[in-house]
Design a protein around this nucleic acid. Structure first.
Length: 730
DNA sequence: CATAGCCGCCTTTTT
DNA sequence: GGCGGCTATG
């Protein structure tokens, strides 16, 4: 293969794509040998460059099998897969998130190392339980050593590839020495549970690659080309992994934009991208500075803002779009008015023909979505909240998943303790404490201790019998735990008694039942798509799935999300709310380190540059914070945009403060109640609290038992009992 | 052993 | 304002 030239052999549509590339994009796509850095501003067609590059590599004869592309979110990976496929390039290239790649690597080489391949992946909630335990085990108070703080510290260390032992060696003052102890204890708990946390996935992978040169060579042979998207957000561990992966051939292609680095707080090291040239001395750098997304006004605003960052390489954004649209700063009285104005504005936009999925609202913290949602519910506007913790954090989902985890990894103590008495089966706290006590004294896992329950003297006969029943239950589930996942979930749900339990709750349990259905549906999808569906693989994938991945452009709804989640997306109309000191920049970022403030500025920069045509940034003069109404101060960033927003009415700083009027009474919610089951005609528009907007396609009149079939905007169709469904008529 | 109710605390952001 | 943990009660 010659550098700089690629023979196009296949795929007419990919040829067409190539023809549309600009000169600099072309350079990035067709540079073949050696390290390549694509420094790209927002809206420069970066994703397109990567996908075209993958296609070009394949066109030039590289086997897809030998290509590995890592992205930031599963959603981005999925999108890239589809795009590459659409270009006519055959599947087979490995496209995933960094973390997924690490799971694959760890699972494959686990047996030769300290890790067993059936490890659990502990999420944030699991982690904090472990950390609490660790702090307690070290005889420390959880108020002086807040688990959250300890976790953050440990995470930082792991991202720098400092393990517990080496940190212990270098700890010198009281705090670091204590932290070292807690870190070691925390790690011990994880390893006893045969579990890894998110950071471990990276740390362990890096460790393996350094320990086993053979593994390194094997992977270098498999992945002859490595592409990393959003390189500015990689942390040290990821950098080291990348270095190992390409050590044999140096075929690394990284793309990124230092101005869009917004993950410093979780270890992202901007030096990675700044030092690319010195890390790979023969690196070729391609800059993409043309912006195909936004109007000149929007770009100027973004430019003005980001120019205030001192730690930065200057870069220009060259607009290619004609002038148009509007950039505005709006003042509102309080967060409720802000939300109402927003909903009104969006309603007008839609009336004038704007597509709802071309409208997005960004905010700094997830909590801010609440007020918005209240207003959206009362409007006729379809919306979707892309939130940090939704589906997989629900109780019922976590319960079912915990059963599944136990089947795969019985040592997973968090999962075990979650389900041992869920639903209630008479194994109470005292019993559990006694078993745990036995387990730690005889250094076996809690699950093994349960198996030996008959030998535990502190237990009387009744609990022993109940434990035996529980063990039988798990044993029974294990029998058919191979192959497809969806049927397994169904079986577990019934056998565990959870189904019965939620059914007995009546209307209360209805949503839980629906959520489980949803889980089964999703698992069925997995069964279809996965090469080799297995419970282990499913669980490990699920653990890495986040809700940003759930954002669905095609749903035709207005998108509500955090500024972080907005990365990589674009919309005709963007609304950014809560531009206030303490919120944006967030109070936690106002530290001695100027880097923290600059990251907040970049965050707003990312938000602004998502807009293609119209941008409206708003702030409220009063905002409710932890239940209290507080006066706010406009964000310092607002003064950096080059817009004279002070002149806009009706802001009068001297006006005496009158508390905003109480919430207008919108009347009782129009939810149907048990005694008034309405007759729903076909074609009627309804809204469901969790499924959103939909149209009635069928109605079965059975009086109190009437059901209705609704086709929702999400594309799903469901049949619901009217008396439970809490449908709102529109 | 299960449940209800109360108290106290709060790192936003995510893989 | 909300969740988790603790306590009192049945």
């Amino acid at each position: 293969m010659k550098s700089g030239s690629v023979t196009l052999r296949t795929a007419k549509n990919s040829k067409m794509q190539y023809d549309q590339l600009t000169d600099s994009q072309r350079k990035a796509v067709f540079h073949v040998e050696g390290p390549l850095l694509v420094l790209a501003g927002p809206g420069s067609g970066k994703t397109r460059v990567i996908t075209c590059r993958i296609a070009a590599l394949i066109d030039s004869g590289v086997r897809p099998w030998n290509i590995c592309a890592v992205t930031f979110t599963n959603k981005a990976a999925e999108e890239m897969r589809q795009r590459v496929f659409a270009l006519g390039a055959a599947g087979g290239a490995h496209i995933s998130t960094f973390h997924s790649l690490c799971v694959r690597i760890l699972r494959r080489c686990a047996d030769q190392a300290e890790i067993r391949s059936n490890f659990s992946i502990y999420d944030a909630a699991d982690q904090s339980r472990c950390m609490k335990q660790a702090v307690k085990d070290c005889d420390l108070s959880t108020s002086n050593f807040a688990p959250a703080r300890m976790l953050a510290a440990v995470s930082t260390l792991k991202n720098k590839l400092i393990d517990a032992a080496s940190f212990q060696d270098q700890a010198d003052d009281f705090f670091t020495k204590t932290l070292a102890k807690v870190y070691a204890r925390y790690q011990r708990i994880l390893s006893e549970d045969n579990a890894l946390d998110f950071d471990d996935l990276l740390l362990q992978t890096a460790l393996m690659l350094s320990k086993y040169p053979d593994l390194c060579a094997e992977l270098g042979d498999r992945f002859k080309f490595l592409l990393i998207d959003e390189y500015q957000d990689t942390n040290h561990a990821q950098y080291v992994i990348a270095k190992y992966l390409v050590s044999a051939h140096n075929n690394i292609c990284a793309t990124g934009d230092p101005d869009q680095s917004i993950y410093r707080w979780r270890g992202a090291d901007i030096r990675n991208i700044l030092a690319f040239e010195s890390d790979w001395p023969d690196a070729k750098i391609v800059r993409l500075e043309e912006n195909f997304r936004s109007t000149p006004d929007i770009l100027r605003t973004a430019d003005n803002l980001i120019a205030h960052n001192l730690n930065r390489k200057k870069k220009i954004l060259i607009p290619t779009k004609p002038a148009g649209g509007e950039v505005k700063i709006a003042v509102c009285e309080d967060e409720k008015k802000e939300a109402q104005e927003l909903v009104d504005k969006i309603g007008q936009l839609i009336d004038r023909g704007a597509a709802p999925n071309q409208i997005a609202i960004f905010y700094r913290v997830n909590a801010m979505s609440r007020v918005l949602e209240e207003r959206f519910i009362r409007s006729r506007i379809p919306y979707q909240i892309v939130r940090g913790v939704e589906f997989y954090n629900r109780k019922e989902i976590r319960d079912v998943l915990a059963y599944m985890k136990i089947l795969v990894n019985p040592d997973d103590e968090i999962a075990l303790l979650r389900i041992i008495n869920t639903p209630a089966r008479g194994i109470g706290k005292t019993t559990i404490d006694r078993v745990r006590d036995y387990a730690s004294r005889s250094t076996v896992s809690v699950f093994d201790a349960l198996k030996r329950a008959s030998r535990i003297q502190s237990l009387s006969n009744a609990p022993k019998a109940k434990i035996a029943v529980f063990l039988d239950l798990i044993k029974g589930m294990k029998k058919k735990a191979n192959g497809k996942v969806a049927p397994l979930i169904e079986r577990i749900f019934t056998k565990s008694g959870l189904h019965e339990y939620f059914k007995a709750l009546g209307p209360e349990g209805q949503t839980a039942l629906e959520n489980i259905d949803e889980l089964i549906n999703a698992a069925a999808q997995y069964d279809k798509v996965a090469e080799e569906p297995s419970l282990l693989d499913y669980l490990q994938q699920i653990a890495l799935f986040s809700d940003v991945d759930a954002y669905d452009k095609a749903s035709g709804a207005v998108a509500l999300m955090t500024l972080h989640a907005a990365k990589g997306l674009e919309f005709e109309n963007v609304f950014i709310i809560g531009a206030e000191e303490g919120l944006l920049p967030h109070e936690r970022s106002i530290t001695e380190a100027i880097e923290d403030l600059e990251e907040e500025r970049r965050l707003l920069f990312v938000g602004i540059t998502r807009a293609k045509l119209n941008l409206r940034i708003s702030y409220a003069q009063y905002r409710t914070f932890r239940g209290q109404l507080l006066r706010t101060i406009p964000s310092q960033f607002l003064f950096e945009l080059g817009i004279d927003f002070r002149e806009q009415p009706p802001h009068t700083a001297s006006a005496a403060y009158c508390p905003p009027e109480e919430d207008q009474d919108y009347g009782e919610d129009e939810y149907t109640t048990d005694d008034t089951v309405p007759k729903l005609k076909k074609g009627r528009l309804v809204r469901h609290p969790s499924f959103g907007l939909g149209k009635v396609i069928d109605f079965a009149d059975m009086g109190d038992e009437s059901t209705v079939t609704v086709k929702f905007n999400t594309g799903k169709t469901r049949t619901l009992m009217i008396k439970y469904a809490r449908l709102q008529l529109l």
